[in-house]
Design a protein around this nucleic acid. Sequence first.
DNA 1: GCAGACCTACTCGGATATCCGTTGTCCGAGTTCACTTGG
DNA 2: CCAAGTGAACTCGGACAACGGATATCCGAGTAGGTCTGC
Lengths: 172, 172
Amino acid sequence: MKLGEGVEAAIHCAATLASVDGNSTMPGAALAESFGLSPSYLLKHLNMLTASGILESVPGPAGGYRLARAAERITLLDIVLAIEGREPAFRCGEIRRNGPVKIDASAYVKPCGINAAMLKAERAYRAALAEVKLSDIVADYAAEGDPRSFAASCAFVERHQRRQKPSSTNQA
Amino acid sequence: MKLGEGVEAAIHCAATLASVDGNSTMPGAALAESFGLSPSYLLKHLNMLTASGILESVPGPAGGYRLARAAERITLLDIVLAIEGREPAFRCGEIRRNGPVKIDASAYVKPCGINAAMLKAERAYRAALAEVKLSDIVADYAAEGDPRSFAASCAFVERHQRRQKPSSTNQA
DNA sequence: GCAGACCTACTCGGATATCCGTTGTCCGAGTTCACTTGG
DNA sequence: CCAAGTGAACTCGGACAACGGATATCCGAGTAGGTCTGC
């Protein structure tokens, strides 16, 4: 029962990316600098978020990352599952079958009650995470957080975000 | 977000121990055999349960393990915390402070909103586990489980449990 | 002056080492039962 | 015949390796922009 450190980094990065303009991007190196993390390692987590469809990546000198959809449609559960994997934490190994007395498989058609209880608890965990949207995190930070810290974050984002083809043909 | 294998073993062993008589004990080797586990490794987990006050251990040839209190007063949460540790799965590293712009510590008196959301979800998880008592697991197993498997388990327990005050040396 | 091609710089992405935790195993401390032996 | 001492066997407990995954790092593929050259 231990979450990797990447989860915290991923959520912070996603919250930061929620503050960038429409289709602008922010390089991974800037995000790493923003939190004092290793750029090379953060790339791995950002890549996982991209693979899960939470972020979009743009290559090239003016490239970077941006949210793949609105912050209101991204929950903490999405990010946690993207980093930690979608399979449940408790995996029933069916050790009840491994005893010395071998019984026919028909005796185990019913799912293990222990497994059911553990999965039920995990559903509660995931439900609680699914209720928190990324926009809630940002709004809470803007409202409850210290104004100095919030202003510094906004300035950092403004300084490092890169606009994607401001007057190009592909503009919707 | 991954629980160790020992959690499943610990819950199964605790449920098995709930079926032994009042102050009788069952050796760890018998429990390991009951689930096809490594005896040496299971001892480590049983020892953790003992250290947490869930089990009691009796040394000596007629020794073994037994529940330290009634099965109605043992929850799945107790067992999970005993094996996995009591600290929460999400540990806020306060990476928001590690940015390039150093801000006075007074800006971070408020707890991190992300940390609050993650801990809230974990409280829901633990609350769900705390609602399931070990006696519920046993009762569900007796009621819903296959009669053959249940009978085999009872026979196994009956064959391996050791009474602490043997008044008769009747052994098959 | 302008268009095209080339070159550079910057980005992400995956492949590669390193470190820590869980897994798995072993041997030692302690206790109770059974046997032996002396009264 | 009975009781105390002795030995042994069985138990738990903690200390000692081995594997796997998370952590951390580096180098390569790809792209956009800037620059140079020819027209």
